[in-house]
Amino acid sequence: MTQDKISLLLDDGRRLDGRELHEIRPITMKSSVLDRADGSCYLTWGNNKIICAVYGPRELHPKHLAKPDRAIVRVEYRLATFSVNERKSPAPRRREYELSKLIKESLDSVLFLEKFPNGTIDVYITVLDADGGTRCAALTAASIALADAGIPMKGFITGCAVGKVADKMVVDLSDVEDKDGQGDMPVAMNYNTGEITLLQCDGEFTTDEVKEGLSLAIRAIGEVYKMQKEAVLAKYTQIEESIDDLGEEEE
């Protein structure tokens, strides 16, 4: 453990990838990337690459799953076989089932499901390249894809993990920091309302460290949320510009 603590932080106090303790990795987000899906998002977060497609609200099969007063949300979070160090079998593992469930429950809270009785909203997420923090990145991408599909929402869910490395609380763990560090604490929330929709941790934290972690996570989520809004708006800005261009040509 002692050796790990030393090796995960450089002598100048920076992290192995050169980041400051509270610095998030570079993030890109793009909506409407797929032709067939109703809504989609491609998100890169450091070396993570995530594709998300949303279908619906649509008719639900099999019918016995339908709720007469609202739509259901089905989420499938999967790791591509080649996204991890050792090739993963294509069949989903326990971890993928659990994360799908948590992501679904997070998204439930921002959707007006009562508007679509008997229907379903299907969210399919595939991690194409994984480097730590995929569930938070997946939730962030899913919110963009849902908005892109034109599904009415109360807000976005935005995620970011924090954790403990060399006895210090750090923001947005990389794969190595997650595996060799002292603890990992993913957080996701509706940033506008302050409602926290996902909180997990594994490792060892003092109660003060958990409090510090939460406050760091919320600050980081604020940064990611800004990018999320821009990514959703970008599509409409482009449409607006192309309409303006058309107008000018006619003149």
């Binding site: 797929l34 032709d35 690459k49 591509a80 076989t81 080649f82 996204s83 160090n85 390249d129």
Partner: peptide, 26 residues
């Protein structure tokens, strides 16, 4: 060469079709 964790990879855009292929070796 699009996937860092894969030994080899390629994305193909063929008309509107998009696929991603990855090679893992053990």
């Amino acid at each position: 060469n699009v996937i860092k964790k894969a030994e080899g990879s390629a994305m193909v855009k063929w008309g509107d079709t998009v696929i991603l292929a990855g090679v893992k070796a053990q």
